[in-house]
Design a protein around this nucleic acid. Sequence first.
DNA 1: GTCTATATGTGGATAGAC
DNA 2: GTCTATCCACATATAGAC
Lengths: 192, 192
Amino acid sequence: MPRESDKRERLLGAARRLIHERGFNQTSLADIATAAEVPLGNVYYYFKTKQALASAVISRQAQDFAQLEQDLAKIGDARSRIEGFLSMLLVNSAAIAAYGCPTGSLCTELNKTSSGISNQAEDLLQHQLDWLSEQFVALGKGEEAGELATQMLVQLQGASVLAHAFHDQTLLAQQIAHLRNWLNGQHASMSL
Amino acid sequence: MPRESDKRERLLGAARRLIHERGFNQTSLADIATAAEVPLGNVYYYFKTKQALASAVISRQAQDFAQLEQDLAKIGDARSRIEGFLSMLLVNSAAIAAYGCPTGSLCTELNKTSSGISNQAEDLLQHQLDWLSEQFVALGKGEEAGELATQMLVQLQGASVLAHAFHDQTLLAQQIAHLRNWLNGQHASMSL
DNA sequence: GTCTATATGTGGATAGAC
DNA sequence: GTCTATCCACATATAGAC
């Protein structure tokens, strides 16, 4: 009876890193196998196809976001929960400036191919949007909550694109700071 | 003495369209040659390498933006010039929602490869940012002009990413409308 | 200038020994 | 479960006839 090994985890981790850094299409299974220190042929024991591996990577990303949600749920104040989300992005701002938003850039890439897994990446982004919307509802913005959530994600994605394009982590940090200020200006009514 | 043919133009046009639709890496020279109705082997008479072709595509995009700049320069009011820029994006919103911003998504993709031409795409985006900044200077925002320009491009790129990810042209149109309102609220002082 | 045929390399995926 | 060797499709790029 076969013993569990951590090869699957190593492959997943390497794939996640490399897909973020180089993009899905520019990452070969050989690259991933090498980085994970797993022989190429062995990859197919754990993942039927390259797409299946990518699919597992996106699922893992979704898991991580779900974990973050869970952690943030312990915070009583919705505004603080959103701030916690922004803080997480700030912590990752170096990687985002270097390689773009892992979710956003993957969506952009996969949406240009008929990969079938593009829906999965979309769903993850939609999930983040929904979460933000819920927080704004909790902040008392009934009608506007959806628009505010969209507004925030638009800015975060845009900031990620520009920070990546210009290799400028500062730009991203400033936009996050800007959003934090904007958020704290959101009380009863607000101007989009 | 060889007569001019429009093959180069056809190749450039096909490459531009296909690279926008499918991305650079997912577009083969065979695809481009077929779309342009030019035999594959003949491509290399006009472009030494695939990179050279992509480079020409970006140059063409830069040319087109320069042309737009020139047209908008005829407008006396800076606010109207910016609105003209937004109008152009609105006209193209279907294509942007379907395939992403041609400049932004190309930057994102090329920045993940060591293609050498990624600088060219960056420069084009930077050029757009500079143009916007100049318009805000003309609007009397000396100090803030750069930040306002960044703010606007961030939102446009973010809206493009989300509209593309969600296949939602409406999202992009709404964000453009939102920016138009925001712009018309920009008079003496403003709140970022 | 134009086009066919092809060289060369790489990537995803499989076969099958161990 | 693990790993080597390899198949096959496709992509960039070149050779060379016309």
